[in-house]
Design a protein around this nucleic acid. Structure first.
Lengths: 231, 231
DNA sequence: TATCGTTATGTGTTATAACACTTTACCGGC
DNA sequence: GCCGGTAAAGTGTTATAACACATAACGATA
């Protein structure tokens, strides 16, 4: 049966999944402000779907930790307190450090080249002050590495963590992206990767996380000191 | 206004939340076999609710990783392959090690006493061959420690990981519970806790995780060698 | 003018019905 | 007896309606 060489028909994703994806994009894109209430009907209306998929998508995002329940079961985009940032940073170091260490041992040359390319593209984007692009490239760089760990569960967990700080990264990026230190950390990671130095890569990634977290924290303290009390 | 001294009225949880909780209990209680298909209508019928809360609860469990999508968007309880067990074990060591280390520094004496009591209760339950009870006490012991980390996000993530192996732990517990080594690890953890030895506690917890994972792995290889290919 | 009860609107929750698709059961033809 | 197709049951998906509760707007009374 020659039919076997046909591609599988593409099956469009459910409305629920599409809504969830749109919401994720909006969250990391900085469309919502921290603390914003998100209502089912608003989501349903603005995306042109009924309540059912909108509600389900929101509840999935909540289960992932990207949204949180406020008073009376209303959903809101969780504000990032200093404490919470510190917690997430610790978890990120543990998880992304693990992923990086495994990845250094398992990544293939072709993948390493692609990761290095993403890094260079990010630097160029930063210099051109294309911050949206730089954020995208930064994501590619990091997750290109993490995917090398061949640990799908771990990668999903890391994605969930990034979602929680996404809105803020967007907010503070210019100042951070222009800093030399951030680029240095990436370069250091790229070198360790090329040398397949697992410990070195882990250290570089940990530095990068710590460094961006510190920037975010000072920014938080400056722009919204009330973040200390929230959440 | 003397009304102020009234207690807040208790507000029952939504059906969705109740269904989700029932499903979690069933999962760690070993009600489902790995690979079992779970249908929305079956859940709805057996719990006496309509499709809506049943479906939403299932989709939350899926988002948490406790259930997985199979072919044609059917949901199933995910089989535990050797690879997946190895991945989860690595993540658990990173996460629960972090929680333990933080907890050693932050736990109060009263909490430490309660944790030690849970441990002793677990040993007694094991000796009495009350394995259901022992599993419960083991959970109390571990999460009693983790709660001490004061890191709610981290704790939620760890709970998610336990959910994935829950069905299997129930399956293999007798052999593992009776082993002296497991108790030894707990004793070691309890001592480190009392001495507030963060590194020692982390090491003891890591040993405990590794030890139970090894048991689970040999059991998996023996009872279902096809687990290598699944999932 | 300030306060309190009332009404209207908004919002989450749940049940039900309708639809498309898949899987199973069944049955006639070869 | 086996194969192919058709009917039936099962299943996920989505929309809609009805309900309970919370919030906001409103207006009357003191």
């Amino acid at each position: 049966m020659a039919v076997h060489r046909l591609d599988l028909i593409e099956r469009s994703e459910t409305l629920t999944a599409q809504v969830a994806e749109k919401l994720r994009e909006a969250l990391i894109g900085g469309v919502f402000a921290p603390g914003d209430k998100i209502t089912i009907r608003a989501v349903a209306k603005s995306l042109g779907v009924s309540l059912t998929p909108a509600r389900e998508a929101l509840s999935i995002l909540a289960a992932e930790g990207a949204l949180e329940f406020g008073a009376n079961r209303t959903l809101m985009v969780p504000p990032l307190s200093i404490d919470r940032l510190a917690e997430i940073t610790r978890i990120r170091i543990a998880l992304e450090g693990l992923a990086a260490e495994r990845a250094a041992r398992l990544l293939e040359d072709r993948e390493i080249a692609r990761i290095a390319a993403a890094n260079e593209a990010m630097i160029r984007a930063t210099e051109a002050e294309d911050f949206k692009g730089a954020i995208l490239r930064n994501h590619e760089f990091h997750f290109g590495i993490y995917r090398g760990s061949r640990m799908p569960t771990l990668i999903k967990m890391i994605e969930g963590l990034w979602l929680r700080t996404g809105a803020y990264v967007n907010l503070i990026y210019p100042a951070f992206g222009l800093a030399r230190k951030g680029i240095e950390n990436h370069e250091r990671a790229a070198r360790a990767l090329k040398a397949r130095d697992a410990e070195g890569l882990r250290a570089a990634i940990e530095f990068d996380i710590r460094y961006s977290a510190e920037h975010l924290e000072t920014e938080l303290r400056a722009k919204q000191p009330e973040a200390l009390k929230l959440a």
